[in-house]
Amino acid sequence: MPRLSCWFIRAALIYLTLGFTFGALLLWNKGVPLYPMLWRLLPIHIEFLLLGWTVQLAFGIAFWILPRFQAARGNVALAWLTFGLFNIGVWLAAAGSLIDPTGWLLLLGRMSETAAVLAFVRHAWPRVKAPGV
């Protein structure tokens, strides 16, 4: 497994742990109320599990198993850029939903995530190819 895939997948596992923890707190609080403000964790629970866990895992696995050019994986710098921008985006969006009522942090987070996805598409597009090409 290449180094960047290790980073993607380990980060995804961290988001899985955090997302499940917030989800468990939310569900427990629904059944047996602990603290009313816990409901504010809902957007972070969703952000961490939908994007941080599932999407990031897909990035890591795709970087690992998509066809290569001889032994190389194409423009690796773009894939590293994806990793950086995507994680900044997830944390900005999560923080924005928790502490920023103006919506600017959420917007910045979404911009960073969009840029990450564009970088990943640019990286992965040429690797989706027939054998031997």
């Binding site: 468990a24 939310l26 569900l27 427990w28 629904k30 059944g31 047996v32």
Partner: peptide
């Protein structure tokens, strides 16, 4: 409610 907490 407690079963929901156990599920969590």
């Amino acid at each position: 409610g407690w079963l929901l907490a156990l599920s969590a």
